[in-house]
Nucleic acid binder design. Structure first.
Lengths: 191, 191
DNA sequence: TTGACAAACTAACACTATTAGTTTTATACT
DNA sequence: AGTATAAAACTAATAGTGTTAGTTTGTCAA
C-alpha cells in the first residue's frame, strides 16, 4: 500500500509548514505524522528524534532568516543598511512567527551545535556594522546592543508587554529605538 | 496517616523553590507532589490546574521582581536610577533564572489576566522615567526602548547568542547599551 | 524467484496533565 | 463520647506527549 515514499525532506517541509501556520515553535509528532498520512513511529525511520528534527528546522529557519536580511540590506551601507535590517528583522519575526520563535528558543548555553548553526545569523549583523570602521571589540559590543534591541522589541511585543500603552504607535517606538542606536553608534565613531 | 496538611501556599512555595533550583520556568506536578510527600492528584484538591498554579507563581515572581527593582532605585533619580535599575534587572534575571523565564514566558497577547498582573512591573520602569519630565507619549516610547534593551540582553545572553565574541566583556556591552539609551533620552529632552 | 533491505506497521512503555470515584482523617455537633 | 460531615488524601483510569522493539510489507537486485 505504501505509495508513501516518506523522506526526511518531506517531514521537515511539512513540519515547517505546520509551524508557519500555527505560529507555534514546535509540532507534535502525532500531528506531523497525521498530516503526512502515516503513523507516528514511522517518522523514526527518517529522523532520530525530535531534537534532530528541531535542528533541521532550525537550520532552515536560520537560512530563511539570513536570506531575508541579506536581501533587505544588499546595496545599502551604514545607517541605511541598519535601518533596512531592523525593518526586515521585524517583518520576518512577525510574518514567520513560528520560525522566529524556534530560532529564539532552541539554542541554550550548553548546546554548541545550535550555536554553530546560528553563526550566519550573527554574521549578517556584524557585516552591516563593518561599514563604520569600528574596532573588532566595538563591533562585538554594538552588534550585541543592536540585536538586544531588535529581539527585545519582538519579544516584549509578542509577550504582550507593550500592551499597556497600546494606543501609542509601536512602529514609532521601534524607530526611536533604531535612531537611539544609530546616534550611539555615531557618537562612538566620533561622527 | 495524613500528617500532610497541604495548602495552596505550600504548593506554591515548593513550586517556586524547585523553579529557583532548576532554573526551569516550570515544574511537573509529579515532581512537585513527590517533593511534597503526596500523590500527584492530591494537588488538585488545592489548585484548579497547572494554568492556575502558573498564575500564582507568576504573581509571586512579579512581586519579587518589583520589590527587587524598587529597592535598587529608591532614593535615586534620573540617570542614577536608570543605571541602578538596569543593573538590578540583570542581577534578578541571572540570579532568579527560573522566575525570570516564567515572567517572560507566561503572558501572551490574548491573556488579559496575565497582562493585568504584569502591570506593576511596567510601572517600575515608567516611574523612573517620570523624573525626566517627558510627555506621556515619550514615556511610553522610551519605556519600551528601555525594556527591549534590558530583556533583549538577558534573552540573547541566555540563549547563547552572545557566545560568538565571548572573550569580549558582556558587562561592558550592557553598560554601552544603557549609556546609549541614556544619551538618546537626553537628546529627547534637549539635554 | 528469491533474498535482502528499507520503510511502513502494531504494540508497548514512560512520562506528562487531568478526572472520577473512594477512603481516610479531622472537626464539629449532639 | 459517638457520630455526621466535609476536607483532603488516596487509587484507578484516560488522553496526550515521545520513543523503542519487534513484525510485516513492499521493492529492487542477484
Amino acid at each position: 500500500m505504501s505509495v508513501k515514499g516518506l523522506t526526511k525532506e518531506k517531514i521537515i517541509t511539512q513540519a515547517i509548514e505546520i509551524i508557519e501556520n500555527t505560529g507555534q515553535s514546535a509540532v507534535s509528532l502525532h500531528e506531523l505524522a497525521r498530516t503526512l498520512g502515516v503513523k507516528t513511529p514511522s517518522l523514526y525511520n527518517h529522523i532520530k528524534n525530535t531534537k534532530e528534527l528541531q535542528y533541521e528546522i532550525f537550520k532552515c529557519a536560520i537560512d530563511k532568516f539570513v536570506i531575508n536580511q541579506r536581501k533587505a540590506t544588499e546595496g545599502k551601507t551604514k545607517d541605511e543598511a541598519v535601518q533596512a535590517f531592523a525593518e526586515a528583522y521585524h517583518a520576518f519575526a512577525t510574518q514567520n512567527k513560528g520560525l522566529y520563535r524556534l530560532i529564539m528558543s532552541i539554542p541554550s548555553e550548553q548546546d554548541e551545535m545550535a550555536k554553530e548553526m546560528a553563526i550566519p545569523l550573527l554574521h549578517t549583523v556584524v557585516e552591516i556594522l563593518s561599514d563604520y570602521g569600528l574596532t573588532e571589540e566595538s563591533i562585538a559590543h554594538w552588534q550585541r546592543v543592536f540585536r538586544a534591541i531588535l529581539h527585545g522589541f519582538i519579544s516584549e511585543e509578542d509577550l504582550g508587554y507593550f500592551y499597556y500603552y497600546k494606543y501609542i504607535d509601536l512602529a514609532k517606538s521601534r524607530q526611536i529605538a533604531v535612531k537611539c542606536f544609530l546616534d550611539g553608534l555615531h557618537a562612538e565613531i566620533g561622527e
